[in-house]
Design a protein around this nucleic acid. Structure first.
Length: 1001
RNA sequence: UCCCCAAUAGCCCAAUUGGCAGAGGCACUCGUCUUAGAAACGAGCGAUGGGGGUUCGAAUCCCUCUUGGGGAACCA
């Protein structure tokens, strides 16, 4: 309602106001006065739409935000996570980060930095392809249209992007370099001794000379070979071995195959056993897939977190994802068998307490370790495990299940025979898929042992460590032979030495991090720059032959048997020389893993970016984006960047120095209560106030989200649907045209309102409101365009910042925007007198006015530096209120205020800058400089506390020394009233803050 | 279940990092102005989630409980 009334006001206002030719003409304060009709009371009015249209055109035309790396000024790189241009367009949540980064970029620019602030589009992706499959519209076309829409929306908000640097990951001129980097990854392996990516030729030379035993490299090669072995291998065999070392490699891997989408999904694209997009079932299937050996960088990805300015939460997430653990990889012999069980443990110190073993139900040794008498039980258990979905397994983690295989292993230290079990709590994919179980020191082992009556030996005495849990590595070893009496950390070390010297195993670092699956059976992605010869040996394409463009196709459905759509482009796949192309495409993360480097030199067709540009811009100083990329994009980008660093192509080890995660802007979801069972064949909706009574009658209800535009008092408690709202609702959802809508006073059906017996007949259906995601499916999306249309971009920008701290989630509330709008009008009004005439004085500002200004300068500067944009907005409000009260219209004050507000309200500032008669853009001016002198207080009002309670305040000269204060304060009548007859034990004076007198009793 | 973060006025948020709980906005009430309403201006209203501790002094530090949000998901 409020929204609507303001819109009316605004529209009538726009109609009535005379059209002044503000647009395009050079306007000075002088001819502004002439141009405006003083009889029209609205001529001094703040008109955001006219101002903003004018300055957008001006900035665009004069390329005000264009930057070059050829500059003497220090660089500053402010980056937003570029958007995927979806069909839905932007909602008010998207620009939050963009506005914050724009303010910061503009601030840094005014502070004298050469600011790189670019924008582009992450334009490859599944949604466009899914859309193409259902509608037949080519992804290139729909993507281009979506981009145009995004651009329009972004332009609407007055961002200072250098659009000459726009990148689109789906453009061949861009993905040429994505392919190039991939080919380089393919051509390198990771040398753990040098601790960097190294050309594969080096490896080939070493294999020929010494085999692979002496090579310390990240790999998935399981056999050792000598130089002679190597030389005896065929080309194909050698190629297969090298594949196990390359940083981009192909191997058969179990993948998340989604039949409905016809593609493989990354682990983070699968949620609860179904695809994140669409919720289709996902199964595990072995396929030949490209992967990136990100695990080679695991340690660097972990340790370099220390040197970057990211939130602890974000670092912890990445750290957990990498999941580094140090321990022992060792073998347990099996009674009556040559085979051994390989386990990984981080607690070798507890081996004396290992009383049984558990291997994963899918473990290779299960069949051979199952004794005939246990056959039946094991088979039954395996059937049970197979029938359980991922989801079930995750849901009841607490339930302990397992089966005894009948075989025994030997604990190499106690030399006792220990039973071997299978249990679903041991995972095939982690470590070796087998554990030694130490029930005394592991919660899960303990639960298992108790359930199945297995032996428990206490091996760690924690009595000296109160509060310590089993998980903590502390305590004194007992019942453990040579380890007895040692502290846990020392015992771990000692045991590792023994294991190694006894030849039982070795020290081993394990990671949760898996290599990144890099193949997708999709059309709309980067083709791999890879061809296969007749033997199937993969070859990277020469840089000169890149980009390898996507063939134009009109059918994007997956081919049968897990084949990508590209497999059908036979002319493209089969080359004249007999080689064939890879038909998979790269995943969405490919293009976004390095786009921040491309912005540095986006048009370069010789290099991904020139060394000049890269050395000038270095890295991203401030990166703003959502938390949802915590472990995906941010991990891959760091790896690609480190790879390029290893190759000497970028000067920094980390790409993003400072990271800020903007919080989500939530929406209010308005729901109608719909009765689950139909009444006389039609749906029935009831007012929220009636639901409790209805449920008591046994009726069940479900919530149906309603487009919020139809809801009156949207967002307020007691928001409701009236007759007009119900009619709009029916028009929107014609399947409910016959439905019953029942309020407390009246019933609506088929266009007719019937009053309930003895009731007024007023029709109101209260809706149920809740705060939730702003999303198309909940019909609660607020489009920034509409808000900008009513209040202007400057107001929208400031309001989004005003909502709350940037990193915090907060609900959107359109009502509050009027406060910011009023503030902007008030700010505008500072430049006009009461009768609406432009009125600026050249007079010397008073000390009071200077104090208001410099207080604002100090607070805005401090707050922007610490990314506290919400408090900046209120500082502007305070300063404006104060200046208005002081009746200040001094040029010296107001011109500084205009510069101060320029990063926040760029259009308004530009207009006032020009009206003040300044030349050039305010965005090329300088940021006001603080003069602390104006902030100095002559006297200070000291609050005086007696025993911590505020009793009075006393004014003293600011430079009164504490000793003098202490004395003077006790002599004051107002103080003596409280201290009379009591012993003064202590007087605490905090200079310029407060005084506390401690008295006895 | 574990880990992390938060909780201040009816609502969104401040509090210079241990020093007078309020800067700002929304909402509400009253007043000025107005034929009236709106706008504008002025004034008012009202709060540190509960319990304990440290301290001269706690919204701020510690312990504990409650609630909300985020993350992890049997990681050996």
């Amino acid at each position: 309602m409020i929204l609507r009334s303001i819109r009316h006001l605004f529209l009538s206002f726009a109609r009535n106001s005379q059209k002044t030719s503000l647009h395009g003409d050079k306007i000075t304060p002088f001819n502004v006065k002439q141009a405006l009709n003083p009889n029209n009371a609205t001529y001094m009015e703040y008109k955001p739409r006219e101002i903003e249209k004018k300055w957008k055109a001006y900035w665009d035309e004069h390329k005000v935000y264009k930057v070059s790396h050829q500059s003497d000024r220090p660089k500053f790189y402010v980056l937003d996570m570029f958007p995927y241009p979806s069909g839905a367009g932007l909602h008010v949540g998207h620009p939050l980060g963009y506005i914050a980064s724009d303010i910061y970029a503009r601030y840094k620019r005014l502070k004298g930095f050469n600011v790189l602030h670019p924008m582009g589009y992450d334009a490859f992706g599944l949604p466009a392809e899914q859309y193409a499959i259902t509608t037949g519209v080519h992804p290139a076309k729909s993507t281009a249209e979506n981009i145009a829409r995004y651009r329009e929306q972004l332009d609407n908000l007055g961002f200072s992007f250098d659009w000459d640097r726009e990148v689109r990951t789906c453009e061949p001129s861009y993905y040429k370099w994505t392919q190039w980097i991939f080919a380089e990854l393919f051509k390198h392996y990771y040398d753990k001794d040098l601790n960097k990516a190294t050309p594969i030729e080096t490896l080939v030379a070493r294999f020929a000379k010494e085999g692979n035993a002496t090579v310390n490299a990240a790999n998935s090669q399981d056999k050792t070979f000598s130089a002679a072995d190597w030389q005896a291998m065929s080309n194909k065999e050698q190629a297969d071995v090298l594949m196990n070392y390359r940083l981009a490699y192909k191997k058969a891997s179990y993948v998340n195959w989604c039949e409905a989408l016809g593609t493989v999904l990354a682990n983070d694209e699968v949620k609860d056993g179904v695809s994140e997009r669409g919720g289709h079932p996902v199964e595990r299937r072995a396929m030949m897939q490209w992967s990136l050996r990100i695990t080679a960088y695991a340690d660097r990805l972990l340790y370099d977190l220390e040197n970057i300015d990211w939130s602890d939460a974000m670092k912890r997430m990445q750290g957990n994802w990498i999941g580094r653990s140090v321990g022992a990889q060792m073998f347990f012999p099996i009674v009556g068998s040559e085979q051994k069980i390989e386990i990984f443990t981080t607690r070798p110190d507890t081996i004396f307490g290992a009383t049984y073993m558990v291997i994963a139900p899918e473990h290779d040794l299960v069949p051979s370790l199952t004794t005939p008498d246990q056959q039946e039980k094991v088979a039954a258990y395996l059937t049970y495990v197979k029938a359980r979905s991922e989801r079930e397994r995750m849901a009841d983690v607490k339930e302990v299940t397992g089966a005894f295989l009948g075989s025994y292993a030997i604990n190499p230290f106690t030399e006792e025979q220990i039973p071997i079990w299978i249990g679903e709590y041991v995972l095939k994919d982690y470590g070796t898929g087998a554990i030694m179980a130490v029930p005394s020191d592991d919660d899960r082992d303990d639960a298992f042992a108790r359930k199945f009556g297995l032996k428990i030996i206490d091996v760690v005495d924690k009595s000296n460590y109160p509060g310590s849990t089993r998980h903590d590595k502390e305590g004194i070893i007992i019942n453990s032979g040579f380890l007895n009496g040692m502290e846990v950390p020392a015992a771990i070390d000692e045991m590792l030495n023994r294991i190694e010297s006894m030849g039982l195993g070795k020290r081993q670092v394990n990671y949760k991090l898996r290599d990144a699956l890099f193949s997708r059976q999709r059309y709309w992605g980067e083709p791999f720059p890879i061809t296969y010869d007749a033997e199937g040996i993969a070859q990277a394409m020469a840089p000169a032959d890149l980009p390898l463009e996507l063939p134009d196709m009109d059918d994007f459905k997956p081919s049968t048997g897990g084949q990508a759509p590209l497999a059908r482009a036979t002319e493209w796949v089969n080359l004249p020389n007999g080689t064939t192309r890879e038909t998979d495409t790269m995943p969405g993360s490919a293009g976004s893993s390095w786009y921040f480097l491309r912005y540095m030199d986006p048009q370069n067709d010789q290099e991904f970016a020139s060394q000049d540009a890269v050395n000038y811009w270095q890295d991203v100083d401030l990166y703003i984006g959502g938390t949802e990329h915590a472990v995906g994009h941010l991990m891959y980008s760091r790896m690609w960047h480190k790879f390029l660093y290893d190759k000497g192509l970028v000067p920094t080890n980390e790409p993003f120095k400072k990271l800020i995660n903007q919080g989500m802007i939530q929406g209010v979801v308005e729901n109608l209560y719909m009765q689950k069972e139909k009444v006389n064949g039609v749906n029935r909706f009831v007012c929220a106030s009636l639901v409790a009574a209805e449920e008591a009658k046994g009726h069940k209800f479900t919530k149906l989200p309603v487009l919020v535009d139809y809801v009156s008092d949207y967002g307020l408690p007691g928001s409701y649907l009236n007759e007009a709202g119900i009619k709009q609702f029916i028009e929107w959802r014609p399947d409910y045209a016959q439905a019953i809508f029942e309020g407390p006073e009246a019933i609506f059906q088929n266009g007719k309102i019937t009053a309930k017996p003895g009731k007024s007949g007023a029709l109101q259906l209260i809706t149920q409101s809740e705060v939730g995601k702003m999303s198309k499916s909940l019909y609660n999306v607020i489009n920034p365009d509409d808000v900008v249309e009513q209040y202007g971009a400057d107001c929208f920008r400031m309001y989004e910042m005003f909502l709350g701290p940037i990193e915090q989630a907060k609900p959107w509330d359109t009502k509050g925007i009027s406060g910011v709008y009023n503030f902007l009008r008030k700010f505008w009004g500072l430049f006009y007198d009461k009768s609406g005439n432009w009125s600026i004085s050249d007079a010397e500002p008073s000390r009071e006015e200077l104090k208001i200004l410099h207080t604002a300068i100090k607070r805005i500067t401090d707050d922007v530096e610490r990314y506290s944009f919400n408090t900046c907005v209120s500082t502007f409000m305070i300063a404006t209120n104060d200046l208005q009260k002081a009746g200040c219209n001094k040029l010296a004050i107001l011109e500084e205020m205009v510069q101060l507000i320029a990063p926040f309200a760029p259009h308004l500032a530009e207009e006032l800058w020009q009206l003040l008669g300044k030349s050039g853009s305010v965005h090329h001016a300088r940021f006001p400089v603080l003069n602390e002198e104006y902030l100095i207080e002559d006297t200070i009002e000291y609050p005086v506390q007696i025993n911590g309670k505020l009793r009075t305040t006393v004014a003293f000269a600011a430079d009164t020394p504490p000793q003098v204060l202490e004395k003077a304060i006790l002599e004051l009548e107002a103080v003596q009233k409280w201290t009379e007859g009591k012993e003064v034990k202590k007087v605490i004076v905090v200079p310029k803050r407060m005084i506390n007198i401690v008295v006895a009793g």
